[in-house]
């Protein structure tokens, strides 16, 4: 469901976005009002998450109380206990993690292999392969969705991990990103390795691939997040509770018999959202790089 678009102008990014940046805006002193407006904006952006966290530790009666409270009057972890004991959230958590990890590894391995071939090796049909792969970047997920389901059903893979994983194991975005990065590495490295007698595969694996750390990190995080948040495909492929991923479970609970348990659903949302926010905060510089590099979230 990713889409190809020409790379935007690159951002000269700082290593730590939390640190104050050296003056770029010039000598004009920013007005205090600008800070106030920006701060109000950030509060609006964060408020839904704050409210979600606060409400998830309230007892059900307090969540539904009119008028609603902001800070919990009674603190309870009952919602989380129910998620993990009664509703099998550990299973969904495991499923989401497993699928996202395998999908990410697949995209890293296969994407860098083809990306390297397209960037650094000469072979007949190279342009056709590149055109074909890039051509699918703009195809909406809905287009492949029905035949994919038919295929996976015929292979007997509905409601299995391979059924959840295989359609996402490779993608055009990974090839595009890795090819771009390999193109920026000097050819001399390859030539020198050839002179030293290294085989072509070894040159790829031991000489060139270790140099692509930042690109692999960016691709890995973006792929992991996309997979973790993916909804439509697991919704139709996972048919029994033991195969649900987190978003599927949360969505089905929110429209099913638990639809009226507000606190429970909000705690569920916390379980889906907080791990990715934590991951994001830990590795955010790769994000900003990645977005500036490709413009694709």
């Amino acid at each position: 469901m990713t889409t190809y678009t020409p790379p935007p102008p690159s951002v000269s990014d700082d290593a730590d976005v939390l640190a104050a940046e050296p003056g770029r805006g010039g000598d004009r002193k920013p007005s205090r009002w600008l800070y106030v407006v920006l701060a109000v904006g950030v509060i609006i952006m964060a408020l839904p998450f704050v409210w979600m966290l606060l409400s998830s530790v309230k007892p059900e009666a307090e969540v539904r109380q009119i008028p609603p409270t902001w800070l919990p009057e009674t603190f309870t972890l009952e919602n989380y206990r129910e998620l993990f004991d009664r509703l099998r959230f550990p299973t969904y958590f495991f499923n989401s993690t497993l699928v996202a990890v395998v999908v990410t590894l697949g995209n890293l391995v296969f994407g860098s292999m083809l990306g390297y071939a397209l960037a650094k090796l000469d072979f007949r049909g190279k342009r056709v392969v590149f055109g074909l792969v890039l051509g699918t970047l703009m195809v909406p997920g809905m287009v492949t969705f029905v035949p994919l389901f038919v295929l996976v059903s015929n292979m007997g893979l509905t409601n299995t991990f391979p059924g959840l994983i295989l359609p996402y194991l490779v993608g055009p975005f990974g090839v595009f990103l890795m090819r771009q990065y390999f193109l920026g590495l000097p050819d001399e490295l390859i030539q020198a390795a050839r002179v030293d007698g290294a085989g072509e595969l070894r040159i790829f694996w031991s000489v060139m691939l270790p140099l692509t750390g930042p690109a692999l990190a960016t691709l890995g995080i973006l792929t992991f997040l996309t997979s973790w948040n993916n909804f439509l495909w697991p919704l139709v492929v996972a048919q029994t509770e033991d195969m649900y991923t987190l978003p599927v479970a949360l969505a089905l609970y929110s429209v099913g018999q638990n639809a009226t348990q507000y606190g429970l659903l909000l705690a569920g949302a916390v379980v889906v959202v907080v791990p990715v926010i934590a991951l994001f905060l830990a590795v955010q510089r790769y994000f900003v790089q990645g977005i500036a590099m490709t413009g694709i979230k």
Binding site: M45, P247, L250, G268, V272, V273, I277, F280, F287
Partner: peptide, 8 residues
Amino acid sequence: PVVTSIVA
């Protein structure tokens, strides 16, 4: 908000 699941 961009990194969070639309469902959640």
